[in-house]
């Protein structure tokens, strides 16, 4: 038994956040302002995602928390423990078994189902911010659908780098209306934004929540002659041999040796459990924690 209200936040706050979420789902991709609360972690550490998760969790949920695809990084572990303590919900590392997934900067490789919710941690919700510093002006641009500036950013990329160099937080147009920042997920993940699950985006410091309901059209911005390409490193996972997952690059010695491995730890472990082995991998054993 804890001294906390379920999932830390008081009921009125959860209602306020849920109303915000409903508005966000009704207007896909539109940034809805909300009264972000003081959380027991500093800004920049996922307070937006935590507040959204806290508002949607129920006692029967199973929670998964990942940070750049991994369940076992410090931050993922902290947040997972936070909800174990304040909500007492079941937790898992298996994507298929989770009903709520909080993520920082990645979408799991495994397709999500209609009964799953994914909550993204968002640092800067405004896709136009770096080109137009004025909040008043960007709000007008969204309301008037004046998105020429977004293509200017892509134009600048091509003129400077020969191609659209944006590798993460790649802007998308949702349901043909709002331009949205999908949070700093790699552009490789952009196609997954069209999914069966519910997607919620929380920015605590910037005090915005936005959402994409299931089966919503999400198109990555590009030029006719420079079409969007979801690229990844041209390697297979060294541990499980997968060719289709997003990879982390690990330097393994001081002679420049490196191994590529799946960023999504659950995906990799599941494949290894099924017997797949990559060039650097050893057959699966239950690892010590």
């Amino acid at each position: 038994m804890t001294d906390y209200n379920f999932a830390y936040l008081d009921e009125q706050t959860k209602r306020m956040i849920r109303r915000t979420i409903l508005k966000g789902l009704a207007i896909p991709g539109y940034q809805v302002p909300f009264a972000s609360r003081e959380m027991p972690m500093p800004y920049g550490w996922g307070t937006g995602g935590v507040q959204v998760s806290a508002a949607v969790l129920t006692p029967d949920d199973t929670l998964k928390v990942i940070d750049q695809g991994a369940d076992d990084t410090t931050n993922a572990v902290s947040i997972r423990r936070f909800f174990q303590k304040t909500a007492g919900v079941a937790v898992t590392e298996a994507t298929a078994q989770a009903s709520v997934i909080q993520t920082r900067h990645r979408i799991p490789e495994q397709d999500l189902r209609e009964d799953q919710i994914i909550v993204y941690q968002v640092p800067i919700p405004e896709p136009l911010r770096f080109l137009e510093p004025s909040e008043v002006e960007t709000r007008k641009m969204h309301s008037l659908e004046e998105y020429g500036l977004m293509h200017v950013k892509l134009y600048e990329d091509i003129s400077q780098h020969g191609d659209i160099a944006t590798a993460y937080a790649y802007p998308v147009k949702v349901e043909g209306r709002y331009v949205m920042d999908p949070s700093p997920i790699p552009k490789f993940d952009n196609p997954k934004l069209e999914m069966a699950g519910i997607q919620l985006f929380g920015a605590g410091r910037e005090q915005r929540i936005y959402a994409i309901p299931p089966y919503t059209q999400v198109v990555s911005l590009d030029f006719d002659d420079y079409p969007f390409q979801p690229t990844k490193a041209d390697h297979a996972c060294g541990l499980c041999g997968a060719h289709d997952s997003y990879l982390d690059e690990l330097i393994v010695d001081d002679e420049g040796g490196r191994v590529f491995m799946c960023s999504d730890t659950d995906y990799c472990a599941t494949r290894r459990r099924a017997g797949h082995v990559g060039t650097h991998g050893t057959p699966f054993e239950e690892d010590a924690a």
Partner: peptide, 22 residues
Amino acid sequence: RMNVSAGGNVGERLMAVNARHY
């Protein structure tokens, strides 16, 4: 826009009326 290239400055109005071919 001082932080955008000359080409981007000139192209902005075109992109604002849906020019989509780089």
